[in-house]
Nucleic acid binder design. Structure first.
Lengths: 236, 236
DNA sequence: ACAAGTCAACTAGTCGACAAGTACGATTTG
DNA sequence: CAAATCGTACTTGTCGACTAGTTGACTTGT
């Protein structure tokens, strides 16, 4: 039992309009998937899960369908459901989408300016990052908060949800990379560079700063691929 | 019965790994939703649909869940499922995401060049657009093919699927806008400008061309909002 | 006539059983 | 002894019945 995994419960892709039973099952399984307690290639039986959660197969099945949509499991008809390996192709895509959107976001922020409350939240997120410099999980939470604030700051409804969807794959890798993470100082400096560029209303500098930040993330995954070949599928 | 609606069957978001029954029900309902045969605020009863499709509620329910994920319907627990109104907020988001990604795509294409087969497909798509100048539906198909080729040309797995997901909302509007569409010449010229910029390896010009093209789409939706206030929800 | 309360007819959510299909091991057969 | 075949025990897919919750019309009392 690793209680520290709770830091990864921050994202809740299944909102309140779903039945509570399904939501609960989905949340627990997702947690186990992100923290790799459920390891790639492992089988997930609907019957077994129904037993474990004390429900019938119906809600379990619904939760599994959503997990399959998120790319965590693969449902093979009449055969079984299996935990997917981390897909390098999916990671490349997620990174591309994230970079494309965040570039547009910071350019817009640099051009039109950022409302005061959001600007304040960015400072707070950066402060929390420095405070959590020796707590890798606390740092990832603050890092998420930073990027989320940035994206939500430009006032486009549910835009963060699009990134969150792509981010799902990343979360597993991030859990893997907790021990080998980039020094906090580097990342915080990059965050500060982004904010500074926005403050100076310099869109080009903001874009460059985001690009630098994103390429940092890529470096880590490169190393991990070699280290965990059984968990990561090189389909890029 | 409007047989011409088949032109909108091009996108099939539900791939072969789903049960055929579910896929069929989902496809038919999606078709009816995109072509507005199922109109916003209309109720969809699981029982009624099960009767209509000659199945039990289970596959119907699964199809409805996916349609809800795509934003076409809203499932209200213990109350019913209703066709959503077209959301202006969702449209703004879709446009932002699409613009952000396509900008990154054409910049990459302009910087690194485009493989010959993809370059040829672009020409073919443009030729088909001109051929279908008096056939609004044929044009939208060719238009989709153009953008799809562009995105797939840079070789990132499933990147088009991300846009397709956002595009779902657009499809209903596009059906509405068939009578008031922008002149074919303008759109084809914009497409050609994009390709020319890529050929010249001019990333900035390519970005500018995409931006111009995207803002064209926005103009149309503006008009439609005023014309169909009962179908379109102004939540932007 | 009107208002409060009741009830019947819906809804989606859940359940347990069965159908259809697959995988793998035991058994039979060459 | 090897190979093909059959059987069994799984899997997901589908089904019809039941549960819980909501709504709106109707009844009933004032």
């Amino acid at each position: 039992m690793r209680g520290n995994a709770m830091a990864f419960t921050t994202s809740v892709p299944l909102d309140a309009r779903h039945p509570p039973t399904v939501r609960s099952i989905h949340a627990q399984l997702r947690q186990d998937l992100v923290t790799l307690r459920l390891r790639p290639t492992q089988r997930l039986s609907e019957n077994e899960l129904a037993l474990r959660f004390g429900t019938s197969r119906a809600p379990v099945r619904e939760a599994l369908i959503r997990l399959a949509d998120e790319g965590f499991i693969e449902i093979q008809p009449q055969r079984g459901s299996f935990v997917t390996r981390i897909s390098l192709g999916a990671m490349r895509r997620a990174r591309f989408v994230r970079e494309a959107i965040e570039i547009s976001v910071v350019r817009k922020a640099a051009t039109e300016g950022l409302a005061a409350p959001f600007r304040a939240s960015l400072d707070q997120a950066m402060a929390e990052q420095e405070k959590a410099r020796d707590d890798a999980e606390g740092f990832t939470v603050a890092d998420d908060a930073f990027h989320r604030t940035l994206v939500e700051g430009i006032g486009i409804t549910q835009l963060w949800a699009v990134l969150e969807r792509e981010k799902a794959q990343f979360d597993r890798v991030r859990f893997l990379s907790l021990p080998h993470t980039t020094p906090v100082d580097v990342l915080v400096d990059q965050h500060r560079a982004i904010v500074n560029a926005i403050d100076k209303r310099d869109a080009d500098a903001a874009e460059a700063a985001i690009r630098a930040h994103m390429s940092e993330v890529l470096k880590i995954t490169q190393k991990l691929t070699e280290r965990y070949p059984d968990l990561i599928l090189d389909d890029a």
